[in-house]
Design a protein around this nucleic acid. Sequence first.
RNA 1: UCCCCGAUAGCUCAAUUGGUAGAGCGAGCGGCUGUUAACCGCUAGGUCGUAGGUUCGAGUCCUACUCGGGGAGCCA
Length: 463
Amino acid sequence: MTTPRIDRVLKEGEIGSTLEVRGWVRTRRDSKQGFSFIELNDGSCMGNLQIVVDADVPGYEDTIKDVTTGASVAIEGELKESPGKGQRVELQATSLRVLGTADPETFPLQKKRHSFEFLREIAHLRPRSNTFGAVTRVRNVISRSIHNFFQSRDFVYINTPIITTSDCEGAGEMFQVTTLNVDRIAEIQTKIDYAQDFFGKKASLTVSGQLEAEIYATSVGPCYTFGPTFRAENSNTTRHLAEFWMVEPEMPFYELPDDMDLAEAFIKTIIKDVLETCPEDMEFFNKRIDNTVLESLQNVLDNEFIRLPYTDAIELLEKCDKKFEYPHEWGRDLQSEHERYLTEEHFKQPVILYDYPRTIKPFYMYCNDDGKTVRAMDVLVPRVGEIIGGSQREDRLSMLETRMAECNLDPEEYWWYLDLRRYGSVPHAGFGLGLERMVQFVTGMTNIRDVIPFPRTPKNAEF
RNA sequence: UCCCCGAUAGCUCAAUUGGUAGAGCGAGCGGCUGUUAACCGCUAGGUCGUAGGUUCGAGUCCUACUCGGGGAGCCA
């Protein structure tokens, strides 16, 4: 007897074959004297397998009452063509075992639709729902697609540290890591002596693996990091997490246009892979979450990303008729409403903005000859906004030192980073893609807390 | 962190000018049915987010706090 997952049974299960399925009951409809229908889901796909249990199945009377929504069961039977509508096959049960009951009085998941806010409070059960099952499967395919994309291009997967002591980069507020007894210190000292701490100095959770990735890009060649990233920013939005997953490729001998080419190919490949691998889940998102998702993803695949210098974008915003709440002027960063206008209304497709004012960007970006801009690029997509941020890195030692001085950074803290420019420096570039934002973009889910299994946000680290 | 909105049954929501709490779904029981978010009947289920205040009387008005939603900033 085989024990296939339900996605296989639904797709290619042979009529007449006998098999056992295991999973969790979604619903049961029955007739006291007749028989019962069970909708079984095992997480392998969106669809449920319909199981018909006749009253003559051994132990039917005693067992069937425990087959309630949420219960886990193992059922043997013969696969038959289904006379009913809505499914190709159904399993005619010959034996029925309840592995674990789920008290219907207290089991929180109903057959009915729940709000995402409620489901977030039961993060341990929400992956058993249609939406979160689908999100989980799509997220997995995106992760696989990310590795495939880079591996097929001979990029090296590297692991940059989670704990860092470089108090740097300005990418955001950092979570501190310490083994010091801070409760005790608060009682007896006014100042903390980090020499006594685990690493002998102040340590934090990483906000980016970029600087370390540059080390490997300039030694083993094109590489990428893919791991958790932490920002202690007090951001309360639908697109920020305190702990999220980021992909950061770094390529030697790449200049900004090469970086943009790679980013565009990257996003398109992920979308293509998801559409090919998860058609049912994507159909679900399009039907139940956002009915523009499939259309907009196809639109991304069919068109070249718009590439627009920051300066031209400002000009375009000045000329357009749209009234904005916030001003836009050269030298200021674009507001969300400006970015959204460009990608959602004006171009209606992804836009890569580049050559930003150097005053609003970090120290490591390559300075253009105009003295005013740096080779930075942001990829903006409809619905989500900024999904990728990247740049060509400053590879000239003296210019990097100038920029660090401008940004009030201590060169001694970055001695190893400067060494990369001192010894065999090469042009290089890279970018960062937030995994969760990509999942949002692909699925149409509007809140980032619903595309990661266990969201970490200000005041929220349950589970 | 800032602005706006919200918190009432297990879930989603309603409750008039301040007058003492209601529906649908879910659940239990019964009925019916090759059913498909099944259908019909009955039943149970609430310290109205927390703490204060105003009032004869507060779900309703005021204050603070907590949590949630939308928007903004920061960014991925």
